[in-house]
Amino acid sequence: MSALVAMFKHKASHELSDNGFDELINLVRDMLPDNNTLPNSFYKMKKLVNTFDLGYEKIHACLNDCCLYRKEFEHAELCPKCVARDGKLKNGQKKIQKNIPAKVLRYFPIIPRLKRMFGIYEMSTQLRWNSNNKSSDSKIRHPVDSLSWEMINRRWPDFASDPRNIRLGLATDGFNPFKDLSSKYSCWPVILTIYNLLPSICMSKESLMLSLLISGPKHPSNDIDVYLAPLIDDLMLLWNDGVDMYDVVTKSTFNLKALLMWTIHDFPAFGNLSGWPVKGKFACPICRESICSLWLKHGRKFAYMGHRKFLTFDHPFRMKKSWFNGHIEHGIRPQIKNGEEDFIEVDKITNDWGKSEKRKRKKNTTQSNVTWKKRSIFFNLPY
């Protein structure tokens, strides 16, 4: 298996064709002793790897990022929102090729991988590391020592009672896979981190779980939630019902549950994942409606003032008018909302997915204003 993985990596790194890869395999087979078990073709290699559930699901996506062709839309030929066809135009042709999807999402299911991890004795033992390695000197050396971990233990004691239950972190960001600054091609990997493991392993590249690969000529931007749907379905299943798994250490079956603790990304990706506007008048997710934003007429952009309200009331900077905006600061720091308050605001919103409304905005300025009002309601902001 290690030889197969190394050869697959070589094929991908040097962009070998299938025929060229077959020739390479036969060269290696000729150098090995007789009766070796190395497959003699690329097709047989893929077939062997697929028996270990190491493959991925190819899900067709709408050209305009409206939806994924899965579940009730699996056999649809037209997008239910923008009426775009599930196909790609070839150069010099006007007919859409149905067998060539316009955009493809690659999803690597996480549940089969978790089953394999609990089937390996060493890995299954490491997944219990968090149960008895908490720091005793109040210093944070691992997420198990954090306040978030303790809050989860207090709020869901049944979940915390079994150390095998998985606690995950999600990280995503876009990059250019061709290392060419002029290329418009974009690739967005979505990676999961298992925090049950010890610090030297949980952030190693062997332990990072690639769950989604969003590729295309344009980045998903605010439509990334459409592509996250398969992963969210699996995470909801692991949280609500759990999945029965065999534990090789105890030689018994147990119900595994998983929880997403937090997400890791830069500020623009934070706006894509959360829906919060990270630019413009209400760009601060902490201050929200109490933000002190100022439009610079000649610079044609917003500047954000009012940071002195986070200082103590007796701080001398509060009285320095000439150093800042010409006013004494009497404001107080805003109160940070918790997850329940955010959920109540979000629960009032009726989402209308797709690009049909966005296309109308280009022709109608009034429609654009209405859309911004809907977006403002999402965050309970004045508009």
Score class of each variant (00 low, 15 high):
132 N>H: 06
21 F>S: 01
309 K>F: 10
165 N>R: 00
150 E>V: 06
140 I>V: 06
256 L>C: 03
354 G>P: 01
125 T>Y: 00
255 N>V: 09
212 L>F: 10
171 A>R: 04
152 I>C: 09
355 K>V: 04
13 S>L: 13
373 K>R: 14
249 V>H: 00
155 R>I: 11
173 D>W: 03
254 F>Q: 02
330 H>T: 08
361 R>Q: 14
323 W>I: 07
11 K>Q: 14
381 L>I: 08
160 A>L: 05
325 N>H: 11
17 S>H: 06
170 L>N: 06
182 S>Y: 11
184 K>T: 10
305 M>G: 06
295 W>C: 03
51 T>I: 09
100 I>A: 13
50 N>K: 13
194 I>W: 00
79 C>V: 02
27 L>N: 11
69 Y>I: 02
172 T>P: 03
312 T>W: 07
61 A>E: 02
323 W>D: 14
166 I>A: 00
265 H>M: 14
37 T>P: 10
308 R>K: 05
294 L>H: 10
114 L>K: 00
106 R>W: 11
319 M>W: 13
82 C>F: 04
126 Q>S: 15
215 S>P: 04
44 K>D: 05
44 K>F: 01
135 S>N: 08
364 N>Y: 03
43 Y>D: 05
68 L>I: 04
173 D>K: 10
63 L>E: 06
28 V>A: 15
129 W>L: 01
270 F>L: 03
175 F>N: 03
63 L>Q: 07
112 P>M: 05
306 G>E: 00
176 N>V: 07
147 L>R: 09
49 V>D: 04
153 N>W: 10
102 A>G: 09
325 N>K: 11
157 P>L: 02
117 M>G: 13
133 N>D: 03
300 R>Q: 14
77 E>K: 08
374 K>A: 08
167 R>A: 04
298 H>K: 15
198 L>H: 12
318 R>S: 05
278 V>P: 02
307 H>I: 08
228 L>Q: 03
137 D>N: 14
